[in-house]
Structure formats: C-alpha cells, structure tokens
C-alpha cells in the first residue's frame, strides 16, 4: 500500500528552512503563466502579422524606396506595438480573476508562497510571453525587410547601370537604401516597444488586484494608455505653473503625478525615420521603465497583501 508520510503527529521531519524570497518559486509561477497564456492561441496573431508584412512589403506601387521601406517598418512596428499593448493590458488583466475562478489561487497561496512572489511571478510570465513574441516578430520582420531592401537595391543598380553609373555611384546608392532598411538600430525600437508593454503590464496587474471585474481593468488600462500619451502635456503645463484656477491646477497636478508618461517610450518614429536611439537615452528610458515597474509592483503588493480571497 502506498504511504503518504512517514511522520507521526509528534515527530517533526527535518525540513529545509523556509526562504523568504525564492527565485525558484517565482520562476515556477512565471513559466506556468507563460504556458497558460500561450495556449490562449495568441500566436495566431503571428500568422496575421506575417500576412500584414507581406502585403506592406510588396505593395508594388510607384513609391520611392524610402517610402516603401518606411511603410514596411511602420506596419511591422505598429503591429508589434498593438500586439504587445493588448497582451500587456488584456493578458495581465485576466490572470488573477482566472486563478480566483479556478480556485487555483487558493491552492497556490496555501503553499509557502508569499503573495508578493505570486504577483512578481505572474508579471514575469506575461513579460516572458511579450518578449518571446517580439523576438519572433522581429526576426520575421528583419528577414522580410532585408529581402525587400535587397530587391530595391537590385532595382536601383539596374537603373544606374543602364545610365552608365560608376562603382562609386552604385556603392553610394546601396548605402543610401541600406540606411533605410535593416540595420541594428531597429532593435532599439523593438526594445522600446517592450519597455512600454512592460510598464502597461505592471499597471494592469496593479489594477487587477483591486478591480471588481476584468472588464474594469481592461477599460481603465486602455484609458490610462491614452491619457499616458498626453501626460507630458499636463506635466509641462504643471511645471510651468501658469494656472487660471484651482480646479485647473488640481486636474493638471493629478494628471501629471498619477499617470505614467508613456510618450517617453514612443521611440519608434525616430528609428523609422533613420535615426538610432542614442545609448544614453535608451539607458535612461530603461531606468524609468524599471522605476514604473517597481512602483506599480510595490503598490500592487500593498493592495494584494491584505486582499481577502
């Protein structure tokens, strides 16, 4: 007969000491969240992504090579942004309610798992999914962009050769097209998309710790997304201090302080135009994203630690 335990009620078994913080527990929750979300057929979006890129990349209408490559980059980054934003807000919003509904939350928290580790693990799982998805999309996009760029270079070279251009002219045109095509600087844009999604996911997790429904979290999440893109205006207004009334001041203060400035992470446009994100800027933006993630997680911990389940 299989036994369950060799312990009697009095004899204490030798147990490993309890760890107040365990990366192993966090990783366990993160990987299970990753597989849980991945099975929600999110990767069908990748198929749509590839189709969109093929359409955008091979429009074959009479545009200049700069315009053609710009459109391809815009569609790719726009799709990556949209996908990661939706996953960050909606994917995160359903996590805690789903665990409550399935009673899984009780079985997890009745194990020696601190509530803050549960939250961190859930967030890490979402970020893993967003990160992996962006990497895959980036790889597909870079491949298509490279292919299209080379087709355009070949086209330009054939025009030049028909006009009797020199090797130097051909090299110059090749360099010009490559400047608008696949280059390492584009990865900075992908990273900035990830940072924005990470901030939104942290915010969504915070909202879900006290929200009364998943829909509330999603609606407020998207509202904050849009307000956050205009937050910079409120901030500049507040810092200038030129108010016409107390209500105006209060609203401006609230907007500037409470809402995140998501415009800081909107660095795709510059990259599409041909500039690389300066290293110093990228580092600072990463630091600010990390700050937002820590703040939102801390706030979520305070709410969730006392939440009655």
């Amino acid at each position: 007969m299989a036994t369950t335990s060799d312990t009697s009620g009095d004899a204490l078994p030798a147990r490993a000491g309890h760890k107040a913080f365990s990366l192993g527990r966090i990783w366990t929750i993160a990987t299970s969240t990753l597989t849980q979300l991945a099975r929600m057929k999110v990767f069908y979006f990748l198929v749509v992504f590839v189709i969109l890129l093929c359409i955008a990349g091979f429009l074959f209408i009479e545009l200049s090579y700069e315009q053609e490559l710009k459109i391809l980059k815009d569609v790719a980054f726009g799709s990556m942004s949209l996908f990661s934003i939706i996953l960050a807000i909606v994917g995160t919003a359903i996590l805690i309610p789903r665990d409550v509904e399935d009673r899984t939350l009780y079985t997890i928290l009745s194990k020696p798992v601190p509530r803050y580790e549960y939250l961190i693990g859930k967030l890490l799982g979402v970020l893993l999914l967003i990160g992996i998805s962006l990497l895959v999309m980036d790889a597909i996009f870079t491949g298509i962009l490279y292919l299209r760029q080379n087709m355009l270079i070949a086209e330009q070279i054939s025009f030049l050769q028909a006009d009797g251009a020199t090797e130097a002219d051909i090299a110059s045109v090749r360099a010009l097209v490559e400047e608008h095509g696949a280059r390492w600087g584009l990865q900075g844009a992908v990273f900035s998309i990830f940072l924005k999604a990470a901030v939104l996911a942290s915010l969504s997790l915070l909202l879900s710790t006290f929200a009364t429904s998943t829909l509330f979290t999603i609606v407020v999440g998207f509202a904050v997304f849009f307000i956050g893109h205009g937050q910079g205006l409120a901030r500049d207004y507040f810092l200038k201090g030129a108010f016409t009334g107390p209500i105006e001041k209060l609203v401006t203060v609230a907007l500037a302080i409470v809402f995140p400035d998501l415009q800081l992470f909107s660095l795709v446009d510059g990259v599409v135009s041909g500039d690389d994100i300066p290293g110093g800027v990228l580092l600072k933006v990463t630091g600010i994203a990390a700050l937002y993630i820590v703040i939102y997680n801390l706030a979520a911990h305070f709410v969730f630690a006392e939440k009655e389940l």
């Binding site: 147990r15 009673r103 899984t104 009780y106 079985t107 009745s110 194990k111 020696p112 798992v113």
Partner: peptide, 17 residues
Amino acid sequence: VDSKHEVGFLPENPYFY
C-alpha cells in the same frame, strides 16, 4: 508563510491549470 509547509489544502470545486 512558513506555517504553510505544514498544511495542504484542497478547495471546493477546484479546476487547477
């Protein structure tokens, strides 16, 4: 949290993952 090492819980109507 450390007291949870001693206890196992089966909730009502669980679905798990």
